[in-house]
Design a protein around this nucleic acid. Structure first.
Length: 407
DNA sequence: TCTGGGGTCCTAGGACCC
DNA sequence: TCTGGGGTCCTAGGACCC
């Protein structure tokens, strides 16, 4: 049975939502109407563009480039900080509105949803529903979306990426040659800056040329990625709309340091703050981790990471911190200036499903678990930073706590 | 000149076992 | 002197997404 898929994509999401929030708080200007970007903080060495207004786009400003470069392109540019709490609110409002159409919604990111409308279309056409969503979001929520209409997720997503803003586009099978094959390969979902030059070297420049390339040639060169790009170029995608919320597969926290650090004791303090945050989130998900990973980025932007598999899954701050410290010591070359440090846990399992090893639940573990639990409860009651073991040098200010895990 | 932070998935090589 | 071939697990790194 042919599926009926919509992709809803908020136009300039962070910028639009910041604009609405500013207006709500009495701002006279609508930053959607001027050259403006949402960006990081240059003084904290995180100065990149997260979102741009149409006027900023006209200057040639691109997402993810540096604020420095953006300002060169557009001297009068206004820069505003991001506010994820606000973004989450608007994202939830959009989701609530979309729930009126189907409960088969995949929240692909904070500003993108896939809707599986296959079983929800009565006499209305998919296109009419798309138009209605587009209009209602604008009128009722005050921002605009692009809607992609197709029979699978890939084509719906490609369609919503056509002309912006506030548009609706279809991409049905018979439209693939005229609407998709004419585009450069860089426009194809999952073809990034590493793969595109390799395809260019093979004289493949448009999605249509990729679609007509021998599949086996691509597979020999790119493996599974080759299979995928050939199928995508031909509009083939059988993946489901994943409307059931999934458990995370890994949880991480990393920081770019305001200045390079070459002192391992300082790095260890930051590692503690990062680990506390990661294990707190892990416990809130009621999950345990079996793999601990530490990442370093040096001043030359070279990344290294080491990981270790644990004999038993755990959510204990102490246990994970000990492993993380071991990894840091193992990989850190004395005197190297470090720009970024991160901790993540992987290979997660549900706590309930965990088999309790006979040798594992000893008294000291119980004690440690109880301490973690007490601290977690205080954090929930008085806020994440109320109590922390990493308070020595204001390290906790570096670690942004992610509020969505509060729920 | 300056280059975020959160993820997911894949690959390749080495260790180890039968 | 010549030295298999699979399979699994673990680790480091890369590519891509928003």
């Amino acid at each position: 049975m042919e599926r009926q898929i919509l992709h809803v994509d908020v136009n300039n999401a962070f910028l639009s939502w910041t604009a609405l929030d500013m207006i709500k708080n009495g701002s006279e200007v609508d930053i959607r109407e001027i050259p403006a970007v949402i960006g990081g903080d240059e003084s904290k060495r995180s100065g990149i563009v997260l979102a741009k207004s149409m006027k900023a786009k006209e200057c040639g400003i691109k997402t993810a480039e540096t604020i420095y470069q953006a300002r060169l392109k557009c001297p009068g540019l206004k820069i505003f900080p991001s506010n994820f709490k606000v973004y989450r609110e608007y994202s939830n409002r959009l989701y609530q509105l979309l729930l009126e159409y189907t409960d088969k919604i995949e929240r692909f990111s904070i500003d993108e949803c896939f809707l599986d409308m296959t079983h929800y279309l009565m006499k209305d056409t998919l296109l009419n529903k798309g138009r209605e969503i587009n209009r209602r979001v604008r009128e009722e929520l005050g921002f605009t979306v692009n809607v992609g209409v197709a029979h699978n997720k890939l084509l719906a997503k490609m369609a919503s990426d056509f002309k912006k803003p506030d548009r609706i586009h279809t991409l049905f099978e018979n439209e693939i040659p005229s609407k998709m094959w004419v585009l450069p390969i860089s426009e194809l979902f999952m073809l990034g800056k590493r793969t595109v030059p390799k395809l260019y070297n093979m004289q493949i420049r448009t999605i249509g040329e990729l679609a007509k390339t021998n599949k086996k040639v691509l597979e020999d060169k790119f493996g599974k990625h080759g299979t995928m790009m050939w199928e995508y170029a031909n509009g083939i995608d059988n993946s489901e709309v994943k409307y059931m919320p999934e458990k995370p597969k890994g949880i991480g926290n990393s920081v770019t340091l305001p200045e390079d650090i070459s002192d391992i004791e300082k790095l260890e303090e930051i590692l503690l703050a990062l680990t506390e945050q990661v294990t707190y989130r892990l416990r809130r998900h009621k999950m345990l981790a079996r793999v601990v990973n530490v990442q370093l980025r040096n001043k030359d932007f070279v990344d290294t990471s080491h990981q270790r598999k644990l004999p038993n899954a755990t959510a204990s701050t102490k246990e994970i911190l000990e492993v993380a410290k071991g990894l840091l010591e193992q990989m850190y070359r004395k005197g190297t200036p470090i720009r970024l440090i991160g901790v993540r846990v992987d290979d997660l399992t549900d706590k309930e499903e965990m088999q309790i090893s006979l040798f594992q639940n000893q008294v000291k573990n119980k004690k440690q678990e109880k301490l973690d639990k007490t601290i977690d409860e205080l954090k929930q009651k008085y806020g994440y930073n109320f109590i922390t073991r990493a308070g020595k040098m204001g390290v906790e200010d570096l670690i942004k706590f992610r509020k969505e895990d509060e729920k």
